[in-house]
């Protein structure tokens, strides 16, 4: 078996283990490339049956509009049970990354939103598309990652995870985050998308898009909510995105790559890592670990 076949078999095994042991599982669907791979694997894991759990998107109201279109089309095409949750309090307060800052926005709309939705629907297991190669605290996380009833992660006290035997036992109110793509790298994800022809949001491919340059971060003018600074004029640039999230918090890269091999080529020759374009990771040292402890995915 080559390494992709091994990773595929492992991810499918993990998903089936959850479905066999969880009472009410859900798949966190972020609309990004990793979610697309996870969804594809779920289709295979339960074929010829339907995917036996709902997908849930925690919408922050600031996602790229193309992501929302892609999400709704995917749900329709595949006849998915899709839940979209927006933190109602955040919505009422009009939480906005420009006014409240990236950290507060992410915390209220994403982390709090997710916790609300987990409690509301009483999900006991949630699949996430995180990979261990993304970030140092992720590299330490188990595949079945236990959360207290307050959704907290205790990195210093993780359950041992032996062989491929997963301890899925929990008490009422507790939950488990499960990461079937733990052992995939960014290259594996792209290569698998390429080999399996998995549909992804067009934002990953290069195209001329209206951009403003903020201290070297290229922000897409996705709608008229983006406040333009004095004298700032959006310019059309050939750009694409390496990671997708809230559009004001996701920097584009200038690129001509509009096929998968070109994207992969660019990725392999690049000198910075994919999360560098993600603004929240830079909020402070060990910021991801802190966010994860508080319940971030």
């Amino acid at each position: 078996m080559n390494h992709l076949a091994t990773l595929e078999a492992e991810a499918i095994h993990i998903m089936r283990e959850v479905v066999a042991s969880a009472e009410n599982p859900v798949m966190l669907y972020s609309v990004g490339k990793d979610s697309s791979v996870m969804l594809h694997l779920a289709k295979k894991a339960f074929f010829p049956g339907k995917i036996p759990f709902p997908l849930m998107h925690i919408d922050t109201m600031w996602k790229f509009s193309e992501m929302i279109q892609f999400r709704d089309k995917t749900a329709k095409d595949l006849d998915l049970d899709l839940i979209v949750h927006i933190n109602p309090e955040g919505k009422k307060l009009g939480i906005n990354p420009f006014i409240h800052g990236s950290s507060k926005h992410t915390n209220i709309m994403k982390t709090e939103g997710l916790k609300q939705a987990m409690d509301k629907y009483k999900f006991d297991v949630a699949f996430g598309g995180a990979r261990r190669d993304e970030e140092k605290s992720r590299a330490k996380e188990r595949i079945f990652s236990f959360r207290t009833s307050e959704h907290r992660w205790d990195p210093k006290n993780q359950r041992p995870e032996l062989w491929n035997i997963f301890n899925s036992n929990i008490n009422k109110g507790e939950s488990i985050r499960v990461f079937p793509l733990s052992n995939w790298t960014e290259l594996d994800i792209w290569q698998y998308i390429h080999l399996e022809n998995i549909p992804i949001v067009p934002l990953y491919f290069s195209k001329e898009r209206p951009i403003v340059d903020r201290d070297g971060t290229l922000i897409l003018v996705d709608d008229d909510r983006l406040p333009l600074l004095n004298g700032e004029i959006p310019l059309l640039k050939s750009v694409r995105f390496r990671t997708l999230g809230c559009y004001p918090l996701s920097g584009a890269v200038e690129s001509k790559a509009n096929s998968l091999p070109e994207i992969i080529q660019e990725m392999l020759m690049t000198t910075t890592s994919e999360r560098q374009d993600r603004i929240i990771d830079h909020d402070g040292n060990a910021s991801m670990e802190k966010k994860k402890q508080e319940g971030y995915f």
Partner: peptide
């Protein structure tokens, strides 16, 4: 410091939990 990713590990200069890292050569992953 590349692999000791937890705050407690970096502060104490020790490894507490397993870290998984990935690389490949021309032959293997």
């Amino acid at each position: 410091l590349l692999v000791d990713g937890l705050a407690a590990e970096r502060e104490q200069g020790i490894t507490i939990d397993v870290a998984y890292r990935f690389f490949s050569t021309d032959k293997r992953k």
